[in-house]
């Protein structure tokens, strides 16, 4: 399930991970490193420039048991959101 850009922008963010400039597997390594600091039910925002992240972060979230919320492209880079479920 993904939600609209406006809803994503309105989310309260527990942690922002800046993976801009890194290529595969940089963004998921960054997500893995940061998720520990996010409380359960908290939202993590990942910033990325590698377009593969649009597929990789949802796959990572599914495997890790978190809920991928959606993404949008803004000012040349990606904003991706997921909710930590456990």
């Amino acid at each position: 399930m993904t939600v609209a850009t406006e809803e994503l922008k309105a989310l309260t963010i527990a942690q922002v991970v800046d993976a801009r400039g890194t290529s595969c597997p940089g963004p998921i390594l960054a997500a893995k490193k940061a998720i520990g600091g996010v409380p359960v039910n908290g939202v993590m925002e990942v910033l990325a420039t590698d377009s593969g992240t649009l597929k990789d972060l949802p796959a990572w979230s599914k495997k890790m048991g978190h809920e991928f919320l959606g993404s949008f492209d803004d000012a040349g880079y990606l904003h991706l959101y997921l909710r930590k479920m456990k």
Binding site: I28, L29, K32
Partner: peptide
Amino acid sequence: FIIANGAAAMD
């Protein structure tokens, strides 16, 4: 090593 690190990042 990319595959291995990706897999490890997925626990």
